[in-house]
């Protein structure tokens, strides 16, 4: 049982994610998480002002159910299936992060410098999380998918648009980590 409580290696996790996608296909649906954001906008009434959100969101209830499942899954994994939440990133990564001021590197699941609840009174943290969120929401809808829809489902289905999108994910990610991070942290 102990191996379940440890972090799962990539060769267990990757196949399980593929299995999730496969089961969803067998259930008649495609794996894509970012479209839920559009659905939620529609539920919140965005369809009254913007056409893009005027659609029958009830047809997306299945995907919101998947979302609910991932929330429950996160709860189970963190509370019942883990004995140590620290993430064993490489020594090199830890020292790079320490240099940027992230002293929780290697000791926590998420950087406490951004995700500790006490940080909600820190304006810089709020701005960072907010800008991150806007970029995620805008970018995924513009690109028509995120890691699940493009990098997993789209590439598995050998779709060129998904390859272009995934290259974009990396262009943006590398720019953020290598160019912008040293300026903001």
């Amino acid at each position: 049982m102990n191996f379940i409580l440890q972090p799962w290696p990539w060769y267990v996790s990757g196949p399980l994610i593929a299995l999730g996608m496969f089961l969803l296909l067998l259930a008649g649906k495609t794996f894509g998480m970012s479209s839920n954001l559009r659905t939620m906008c529609s539920i919140l009434g965005a369809g009254k002002k913007v056409k893009f959100f005027a659609f029958d969101w009830k047809a997306q209830k299945w995907n919101l159910t998947v979302v609910l499942g991932t929330i429950i899954g996160g709860f189970i994994a963190a509370n019942l299936l883990s004995n140590n939440l620290s993430v064993a990133i490489s020594a090199e990564t830890i020292s790079d992060l320490n240099a940027l001021g992230f002293n929780s590197a290697g000791k926590a699941y998420l950087p406490t410098e951004l995700f500790d609840v006490s940080q909600l009174s820190n304006l810089k943290t709020i701005i960072i999380l907010a800008i991150g969120g806007i970029l995620i929401g805008f970018g995924t809808r513009y690109a028509g998918g995120c890691t699940s829809g493009h990098a997993i489902t789209g590439l598995s289905n050998l779709q060129l648009p998904s390859l272009i999108a995934v290259i974009g994910f990396f262009v943006g990610g590398l720019l953020m980590i290598h160019i912008i991070f040293p300026l903001i942290f």
Binding site: M33, S34, L110, P111, L114, I128, L129, I131, G132, G133, I134, L135, I136, G137, F138, G139, T140, R141, Y142, A143, G144, C146, T147, S148, H150, P161, S162, I164, A165, V166, I167, G168, F169, F170, V171, G172, G173, L174, L175, M176, I177, I180, F181
Partner: peptide
């Protein structure tokens, strides 16, 4: 795909979550 993907990539790296 390229521009939208890059914008998402910026956010993914900043917030660390997709």
């Amino acid at each position: 795909y390229f521009i939208g993907g890059s914008i998402f990539g910026l956010g993914w790296a900043l917030a660390g979550a997709c």
